[in-house]
């Protein structure tokens, strides 16, 4: 395995939230002790429901937000302090793609100008070289220079996401954080963008952090997948293996809830209860109120992420090492 490009160690981030005008402010632990490593050229998929802290993790990894505790190292170096020249140099090597391409683009500028903008900001190349680079980028995302002259409003959703991708690639980044990049797209267009992302990753040797709630898309693109629940990683392992044999009861429910053509709903695990509220995290294992297998210990003791054989790590009192895996 190649050396890690991104190393995240035990990052935490909490926000304070006030309930009502005079209510006491409470701390919401959006991310709580998350550790990850992403090897060069690989993709880590981050899945979880809304409020699980996956987007916050992505923002901290990119340095858009500082963790309260813990550290992010990029290519062996700690993240530089924000707004310093070192930070800017580091930021040029990492980029982000969001879910809503129209919100990420300026409606009043032709898209080619927007693709050029990062080159202008980071002072890369002469003006003529920048023009060439824009044409090259448009070609890389399978669009023509004619598309570049248009405004975002005149492009389809899939084309806009390609423009966002081209702009993110302008500074030749090593690392890309994609936060739900295809969730707003129709199925047929989604497949185009996923294929494009895979191709570009292979050509350019990109390292990706791919955040999505869509298990299918995550499996398609990821080498390693981490499942988050209420700010913590509950299971992490290689993508194919994790979806084929989920160990954590939450992962099992997620995989089972993902509808599959040709299968009727019989035998599906339907979790009781509401989605978790980060402001009122249950004691012990955060998942225990909804867990079909919870025992007394789950309500009092927080399970730690522990290796259970192979490259799999699970945070569950009921999944302990090799004998459970053999029995399953």
């Amino acid at each position: 395995m190649s050396p890690p490009l991104v190393e995240v160690s035990a990052i935490s981030r909490s926000y304070s939230m006030r309930s009502g005008m005079f209510g006491r402010s409470t701390a919401v632990h959006a991310v709580d002790g998350v550790s990850l490593t992403i090897a060069k050229g690989e993709t880590l998929g981050l899945v979880g429901e809304s409020g699980s802290g996956k987007s916050t993790t992505g923002r901290i990894v990119l340095g858009l937000e500082l963790p309260d505790r813990g550290e992010v190292r990029f290519d062996g170096q700690p993240m530089a302090a924000p707004n310093t020249p070192a930070w800017r140099a580091q930021r040029a090597r990492m980029q982000m793609i969001f879910q809503d391409p129209l919100g990420a683009l300026d409606r009043r500028l032709p898209v080619a100008t927007q693709i050029r903008e990062p080159l202008d900001i980071h002072g890369i190349g002469t003006p003529a070289e920048r023009e060439d680079r824009v044409r090259e980028l448009l070609r890389a995302v399978e669009l023509t220079p004619a598309h570049g002259a248009r405004y975002p409003g005149a492009l389809s959703g899939g084309q806009r996401q390609r423009i966002v991708l081209a702009r993110a690639l302008a500074t030749k980044p090593d690392f890309l954080v994609c936060d739900e990049p295809v969730s707003a797209l129709d199925v047929s267009i989604q497949a185009q963008v996923v294929n494009l992302l895979c191709d570009l990753q292979a050509q350019l040797g990109l390292t990706l952090l791919f955040i999505s709630h869509d298990l299918r898309v995550v499996r398609q693109i990821s080498n390693v997948v981490a499942v988050m629940y209420l700010g913590r990683i509950v299971e992490i392992g290689s993508a194919d293996d994790l979806f084929a044999r989920p160990e954590h009861p939450y992962t099992q429910a997620l995989v089972s809830a993902s509808p599959a053509p040709g299968r009727r709903s019989a035998g599906r695990i339907v979790l009781a209860g509401d989605p978790p509220n980060p402001a009122a995290r249950p004691q012990g294992c955060a998942f225990h109120p909804r867990c079909p297998r919870a025992v007394a210990r789950c309500a009092s003791e927080v399970p730690a992420l522990a290796a259970v054989g192979g490259d799999r790590q699970v945070a569950c009192h009921l999944v302990t090492g090799a004998q459970t895996r053999d029995a399953a």
Binding site: G158, S188, A191, R219, A244, V255, P261
Partner: peptide, 24 residues
Amino acid sequence: QGLIGALPPLDGPRRRLTAIPGTV
């Protein structure tokens, strides 16, 4: 066929998605 081919599988071997070219 295109819609079903564009759906990434959740198990079995990974294959390249058969994207439908163009747009609606």
